[in-house]
Design a protein around this nucleic acid. Sequence first.
DNA 1: TTACAGCTTGACGTTTACGTCAACGTAACG
DNA 2: CGTTACGTTGACGTAAACGTCAAGCTGTAA
Lengths: 125, 125
Amino acid sequence: MPSYSISELSHEFDITTRTMRFYESEGLLSPKRDGQTRIYAEADRVRLKLILRGKRLGLSLAESKELIDMYKPRGNNEAQLIKLLEKIRERKNILAQQLLDIQAMENELNGAEERCQEALNALSK
Amino acid sequence: MPSYSISELSHEFDITTRTMRFYESEGLLSPKRDGQTRIYAEADRVRLKLILRGKRLGLSLAESKELIDMYKPRGNNEAQLIKLLEKIRERKNILAQQLLDIQAMENELNGAEERCQEALNALSK
DNA sequence: TTACAGCTTGACGTTTACGTCAACGTAACG
DNA sequence: CGTTACGTTGACGTAAACGTCAAGCTGTAA
C-alpha cells in the first residue's frame, strides 16, 4: 500500500500544505501519524481528489464532506437511509441543472468566440 | 419594454435586495433610476440571470463580470481581441473539465443510490 | 393623520477558505 | 556543528459575498 507525505500530495494536486491541514481540521481528511508527521494513505488521496472535484463544481467543503460520506452508507437506520436517498437525488438535480448551465454557457462562449474571431479577421484584412 | 422593481427581480430569482444592491456596487448591474428608486430593464434582468448561472457553476462575481462583458466585444484593438479569445478558450476548458466532473460525480451518486436502495430493501424484507 | 409598505444609503458583522507569519522539532548534508 | 529541508502547532490576517441592523424618505390606504 502506497503512502504519501503532505508535500507529495500538495505537489500532486497543486495545493498548499496549509490547505491540507485546514481540510484535516475541518474533518475532511484524517491521515495516520508517524510521531508528529502526517502519513497519507491511498484512501486519503482519493478523498482529497473528491474534495477538489467538489470545489471545481462549486461545492463548499461542508457539502463535499457530506457527499463523500454518502458514498459509504454507514447509517443502517431506515430514516437515515431515506434522508440519504433524498440528498443523493437533490445533488443529482443540481448536477442536472449544472449540465444545462454548462451547455448554455458553452453556446454563448462559442458565439463570443466567433464574433471575436471575425473581428480579428476584419482587422488583419 | 418591460421594467422591474428591485423586489420583483429579487422575488423572481429568489435573492435578497441586499444582494442586488451589492451586485450593483460591484459593477455587475447598473439599473436606471427614478429619483432614488432603481428601475431594472430587461437587459439588467438578463445580466442578473447570467450572474446567477455563473454562481451555480462556481464562478466568482468578478469572473462572471468578466465573462458577461466578453459576450459583447467592445475592444477593437487586436491585442485585446486576442486576450479575449484566450480567455474564452480558457473558460471552455474549465467547462469541459466540469462536464467530466459532473459525469464522474453522477456515476458515484448512482452507485450510492443503488447501495442505499438495496440497504432499504434489505430492511423492509 | 397616522401607519404601513417599499424604497434608499451607510456601517458594521459574519462565514468560508484559506494565507501568512512565528516559533519550534528533527533528520541529513557538508 | 551549523544550516538546509521538511515537518509541526498556534495565532492572526484577509478576500469574497453577502446578512443585519439603523435611520431616513415616500406614497397610499384606513
